[in-house]
Structure formats: structure tokens, C-alpha cells
Design a protein around this nucleic acid. Structure first.
Lengths: 165, 165
DNA sequence: TTTTTTGCAAATCGTTTGCACGCTG
DNA sequence: CAGCGTGCAAACGATTTGCAAAAAA
């Protein structure tokens, strides 16, 4: 039974095209996952998606979620980015534009930013080093304005040491 | 039995000081780990260290290695940085200076670089956003000059999707 | 002696995978 | 109908942890 389809946005078409090109199928599960991601999330992880999908209606296994996330990353609808944590984090790619992250180590807030110079500078460096960039990632860890006075040094040192980058 | 100490370099003193400040002990195992790291490595992982330490003389458990690595990160003698892989990578911090990485997705070569503008730009962004930076990390993934013609698109798309950042 | 360390093995935990059944195209 | 997709549960694999024995201070 096909999901009572809301008008499929461009993301859906993109996914469909990708799947067809790989001879893969557009299943209900895949549709629901994509919809959930683009409806409700900015940054999320597999567990959030699992709970989000299972709280309401029928269940969906973690396996399917992981497998679908892989496909979505492959066709550039989703970006994988652990944001310093030990597990994977993902984000929906809404516009084509890229951005980097400020990550608060106290409250886990993620602040996105984009700076053209920064991108250009990177291009420049790659060119100099004769390196062909395919992906890049800048994350700055620290304390957001709300958290600056809420922790102590030793806690922060521990947290910095725990960062996975 | 204390290791027949080569003249302890400044790193050793730093470690010793740190340990003492925490009422921890300077054991043979810890000395050997630090020595191995600063003698032989640039970028390494726990497994490399394990093999390096165990191939010659007596054995050392992985547990000790992980526990010691944690201490070394705490006292800023070692930096933890997965470089996009699923497991942790580490590097000895030889000078105080910071650098970023170009990482070849084909041959895993790591090219270090430093660019003052880049650092300044980041400072600027943080200042604007009222964010206190504690750690940052820029990695550019792609193909080094030697590998540019050695792979195909689909392989690279897969590898990019596997990156953990 | 007292406290910290170590090695071992078992436990974690997010993620991946093999398999048998079910559904899509 | 053939080929993918799914759920389940088991496998994975790097890292962590509890515990009893061993070593530093």
C-alpha cells in the first residue's frame, strides 16, 4: 500500500531518480524516512529517526533506517557528520549551499555559518598543494553565548578530549 | 623495574608534571607509550601503537594503551582526531602550533597545513556569533596528487559517504 | 602499607550483515 | 515472476569497564 502521498517535493523526485538509476525501489519505508527527515529535522541521528518513525504508526527496523540513510547520503539529500560525537549525526541538505558548524560542548546546540572567504581560502590551499577536494568539514567546538559561564575548566577539558573529529 | 631511561625530553617532564598533579604514577608502561609515540609516529591509531609496543619485548594490553592515550590527550601531548575514519586517530603534538589536514581518500595520506588567515577568519566568526572556541578542526577530504587518476566516481562517492566527521 | 595500575575478559553500543520471507515493478 | 526490500537477531569492532592480582610511593 502506497503512502497517501503528499505532493512529492523536489527531494522526493531526486530520490526517485536516484533509486531508478540504481534499479532500486521506492518503498513506503523509504518515502516515510525521507519525509520525516525533511519535515521535522535539522540535525538528527539514527536513534531520533527510529523513535520518530515508530512512535506513531507501524514500526520500522533500525536496519532499514541505516540502509536508507546510506542511500540518502549517496544521492546527496542527506549529509553525514558526527559533529564531534561518538555516533553518526545527519542533516537534511535543503539547499545546495554548504555550511560549517559551531558546536556547543555544553548544550549541544549547533550553529550553522557560511563564509565565502573561508571556502575560497580552502580552494586556494588545495590548489597549492595539488590536492583535489571532494568534501570538507570545519567544526568549531566551544561554548555558545548561553553556556559560557555555566561550566568549569576541568569539565571542558574532559569534553574536548572526548571530541571525535 | 624502571626503563633504562634515555634522557627524558620536555614531553616526558610535561607528562610527569601532569601525572603528579593528579596524584598518578609514572609507570614503565606510560613511559614506553609516550616514548614510542614521540619516537616513531606522526599520525597513528590505537592498534598501531598496540602492535608497535608488542612486537618486540613484553606485552602491553590494549586497556592500558587506551587509558594512557586518554591521559596524554588530557595533558595536551597528544591530539585525538579520527581523520574521517570510523575509529580514533591520534597525533603527537610536537610544537605548540596547530595545523589542519588534507586527507587522501585513496591512499590515506595526511597532508598537514597551516594558514594564519584561516585561523583568524575563524576567530572572527566566533566573535561575531558570540561563541567561545575551545577546539576546532578543519579537514579536507579528496585526492592527493598521486591518486587523482587512480579511482572512479562511484568509488569516491562511496568513500565520501563513509567519512566520519 | 596504601593506593594506583595492570591485564584479562566481559560488557558496551552504534552500526552492519546474513537469512528467510514479503512486497515492488 | 524475478529481484529487491524488510525485520530479526546475530555479528562486528573499536573502546570501555569491573575485578583481582601486581607494582609504585
Amino acid at each position: 500500500m502506497r503512502l497517501n502521498a503528499k505532493v512529492p517535493p523536489s527531494e522526493m523526485r531526486c530520490f526517485e531518480t536516484y533509486l531508478r538509476s540504481k534499479k532500486l525501489k521506492l518503498t513506503d519505508e523509504r518515502v516515510k524516512i525521507l519525509t520525516t527527515i525533511f519535515d521535522k529535522s535539522t540535525h538528527f541521528n539514527a536513534e531520533w529517526l527510529y523513535r520518530e518513525l515508530n512512535q506513531k504508526k507501524q514500526s520500522m527496523s533500525r536496519a532499514t533506517i541505516y540502509r536508507t540513510l546510506y542511500l540518502l547520503v549517496q544521492c546527496n539529500l542527506v549529509r553525514r557528520n558526527s559533529l564531534g560525537s561518538a555516533h553518526a549525526n545527519y542533516e537534511a541538505i535543503r539547499e545546495a549551499e554548504h555550511h560549517d558548524h559551531l558546536i556547543c560542548l555544553n548544550c549541544d546546540r549547533v550553529i550553522e555559518f557560511y563564509r565565502l572567504n573561508l571556502e575560497q581560502l580552502q580552494e586556494e590551499i588545495c590548489h597549492e598543494k595539488n590536492f583535489q577536494p571532494l568534501h570538507h568539514n570545519l567544526q568549531i567546538f566551544g561554548l555558545c553565548s548561553e553556556c559560557i559561564n555555566k561550566t568549569d575548566d576541568s569539565t571542558m577539558r574532559h569534553k574536548v578530549a572526548q571530541i571525535r573529529t
